[in-house]
């Protein structure tokens, strides 16, 4: 089975005007069993899945995803178990998987060892939000060697950096929709469409938008001009509810989670409008 950057790029190349849905959840949130249920559901609707490897100090995340990381760590999640979890998803699904984590766990493990580890269980690339262009030379070299996707973030404040960063991307470019950390928001910055256009012009890979996206309406809006839409906090909130629920209610919440994921997936189809 072909894996790595190329499957990520292919998954997000526009087909019939449809944008890709890229859900994010934290590995092991709220616990391994429920996390696996949620990933099974997402694997049926996602074009690419982002799996968070939880970190103690998630600087780029708002309260929802911070909560997810804290629940996962409290349930015993660690790097080795996160790899096991990715392997279990890969056992039944060919959906491209991007690992999302922070610079320190990768640095501590060693860039090469970390990337070879996640590649061996079937991950196709990484996002590391606190490793900007200037600090990512070694990571990019290792990713290129392994043919894994390097998904850099481009922000509204990037200015002339945007095009330079876009050129380094493999897999896709991640455009940050707002100033601030992850978390649901009512609206996106007015300059967002222009940023996406600029990045698209500079890049040879698909361009996705994330941060603050939580409703089918927002997904439909972004699908007008982005190749992919990333939804994180809104999914992670379900993990919080599932973790807090009685056993008898978990199934019902998973059904709601499935319905929500389906609504978002339908909203990526511009033909519907």
């Amino acid at each position: 089975m072909e894996r790595g950057r190329i499957v990520v790029e292919n998954a997000l190349r526009k087909r019939n005007g449809r944008a890709g849905l890229i859900p994010f959840v934290v590995a092991g949130d709220p616990d391994v069993a429920q996390s696996l249920h949620m990933l099974r559901i997402l694997s049926e609707v996602a074009d690419v899945i982002e799996i968070g490897i939880p970190y103690s100090d998630p600087l780029a995340d708002g309260p929802a995803i911070q909560g997810g990381a804290a629940r996962a760590l409290a349930s015993g999640m660690n790097l080795a178990r996160a790899r096991d979890l990715i392997a279990q998803v890969r056992a039944y699904s060919s959906v491209p998987i991007i690992a999302f984590t922070y610079a320190n766990p990768v640095y501590k493990t060693g860039y090469r060892a970390f990337l070879e580890g996640i590649q061996s269980v079937g991950a196709d690339g990484v996002i590391i939000p606190d490793l900007p262009h200037e600090e990512s030379g070694e990571l990019r070299a290792e990713l290129a060697r392994l043919d894994l996707a390097y998904v850099p973030l481009v922000a509204l404040t990037s200015g002339e950096r945007a095009a330079r960063i876009a050129k380094t991307a493999t897999g896709f470019v991640y455009c940050v929709s707002t100033l601030g950390v992850t978390g649901e928001r009512k609206q996106f910055a007015a300059q967002l469409p222009a940023l996406v256009q600029e990045v698209k012009a500079a890049s040879t890979v698909p361009v996705a938008v994330g941060f603050g996206v939580s409703s089918p309406e927002q997904v439909a809006e972004l699908a007008q001009y982005a190749d992919g839409v990333i939804v994180g906090s809104a999914f992670v909130k379900y993990a919080g509810m599932i973790g807090a629920a009685n056993e008898s209610d978990k199934g019902r919440l998973l059904d709601q989670f499935r319905a929500f994921a389906n609504d978002l997936a339908r909203a990526t189809d511009k033909g519907e409008k």
Partner: peptide, 20 residues
């Protein structure tokens, strides 16, 4: 120029802050 003292230092922050 990279903000390093020997091996140490640097700018390990989200892209949004880099220009600032």
């Amino acid at each position: 120029q990279a903000g390093r003292y020997g091996d140490f230092g640097g700018r390990f922050v989200p892209e949004t802050l880099m220009s600032a």
